[in-house]
Amino acid sequence: MLTNALNGLVYGSLLFVLSSGLVLVYGLRRVVNFSHGALYMLGAYIGYSIALRYGFTAGVLAGGIALGLVGIVLDLLVFRNLSDRNPLVTVIVTFGVFLVLEDIVKSVWGTQNYTLDPPAALAGVVEIGGNPFPAYRLFIIGASFLMAMILVVWLKFGRTGLFVRAASVDPSVAAMCGVRTDLLGPAVVGLGAAFAGFSGIIAAPFLSLHPAMGSEILVLSFVVSVIGGLGSFVGAFVSAMLLGQMQAFGTVYMPELASLLPFLLMSFILIWRPQGLGGRSA
């Protein structure tokens, strides 16, 4: 029971960090970013290459920072021009970015699988309720919660966080009050991409690296954002945790339905509360 709940927590927190990147970008730019899965994958591959040479910590930092830069470039070149376009256009363009990044990964790293060992300090197991549990998985929970806390504190109490919230509600009024909204865009998209990069490299020691990893996780992270309500952090948090637990307990008690459960929940939420758990009604 306890191990199951922990398993769910691990996957849930990984999904949460990944989808908070989506939420950030949607909140400010109103762009549904389909390239997010590829950013996650790129973060994992860059982090992996650095981690092999300079150690795991360097790899994690590199994955986050490199993807932050990619995010800034993406915003200046693509998202900025998309913010008031037809949603269908943004879907097609960001999906195109996804395919391009996926091909870049394939031509640089090839199609074979790579695995990364967890750092030595986290390689062992911890006894929990009499059963061994990998220490690295506990680290994932800790790291995700830390990142979530930093994000919440920054948005709620930081001055720039206030600007981001203001610009998400109404960019033109925020600009009139003196907020440099043109600078906020690249910063927020960069941060969103960095979150994708972080989650990619943090996932690497327990999910192997391969060119399909981005599309595999993209679907689930969208389910998280839709259930939570696009643009809502609290919603994303609740739905990521819910999905993680569903995955963990579903495979034990309803193995035939386990892979369907996230989508059943999403359909149910869309009928009952179309704006999502934490979304404001339009």
């Binding site: 398993n7 996957y11 999910l207 495979t251 034990v252």
Partner: peptide, 12 residues
């Protein structure tokens, strides 16, 4: 199911 990434629930 195909596409399973996290096998923890199965391993348990």
């Amino acid at each position: 199911p195909l596409g399973t990434a996290d096998f923890a629930p199965y391993i348990t």
